[in-house]
Computed example of a mutant assay.
Amino acid sequence: MDQQNVAEAGAEAQGYGTDPNLVTPHAPWPRTLSEHERALISALADLILPGTDEYPAPSGMGIVEFFDEWVSAPYKTQQQHRTVITTGLAMVDAEARRQFESDFLELDVPRQRQIIDQIASPTAVDRKFFIRFRHLLLGGYFTSDVGFKAIGYIGNVPLLSFPGVTSDVQRIIDDELEVLGL
Score class of each variant (00 low, 15 high):
Gln118Ser: 11
Gln118Tyr: 12
Gln118Lys: 13
Gln118Gly: 06
Ile119Asn: 07
Ile119Arg: 07
Ala120Gln: 13
Ala120Thr: 10
Ser121Phe: 11
Ser121Tyr: 07
Ser121Gln: 05
Ser121Val: 04
Pro122Asn: 05
Thr123Leu: 15
Thr123Asp: 13
Val125Tyr: 09
Asp126Met: 01
Arg127His: 06
Arg127Gly: 03
Arg127Phe: 04
Lys128Asp: 10
Lys128Arg: 15
Phe130Gly: 12
Phe130Pro: 10
Ile131Lys: 13
Phe133Asn: 00
Arg134Ile: 03
Arg134Asn: 12
His135Lys: 04
His135Trp: 07
Leu137Ser: 00
Leu137Arg: 00
Leu137Lys: 01
Leu137Gln: 00
Leu137Gly: 00
Leu138Ala: 09
Leu138His: 13
Leu138Tyr: 14
Leu138Thr: 14
Leu138Cys: 09
Gly139Asn: 11
Gly139Cys: 00
Tyr141Gly: 02
Phe142Ile: 08
Thr143Asp: 01
Thr143Ile: 02
Thr143Ser: 10
Thr143Gly: 01
Ser144Ile: 07
Asp145Met: 07
Asp145Pro: 10
Asp145Cys: 01
Gly147Arg: 00
Phe148Tyr: 14
Phe148Cys: 07
Lys149Ala: 12
Ala150Thr: 03
Ala150Arg: 12
Ala150Ile: 08
Ile151Lys: 07
Ile151Arg: 09
Ile151Tyr: 02
Ile151Ser: 05
Gly152Arg: 03
Gly152Phe: 06
Tyr153Thr: 02
Tyr153Asp: 12
Tyr153Trp: 15
Ile154Met: 10
Ile154Pro: 00
Ile154Lys: 10
Gly155His: 02
Gly155Asp: 06
Gly155Phe: 05
Gly155Trp: 07
Asn156Lys: 12
Asn156Asp: 14
Asn156Arg: 13
Asn156Ser: 13
Pro158Ile: 06
Leu159Tyr: 15
Leu159Ile: 08
Leu159Pro: 06
Leu159Met: 15
Leu159Arg: 15
Leu160Tyr: 13
Ser161His: 11
Pro163Cys: 09
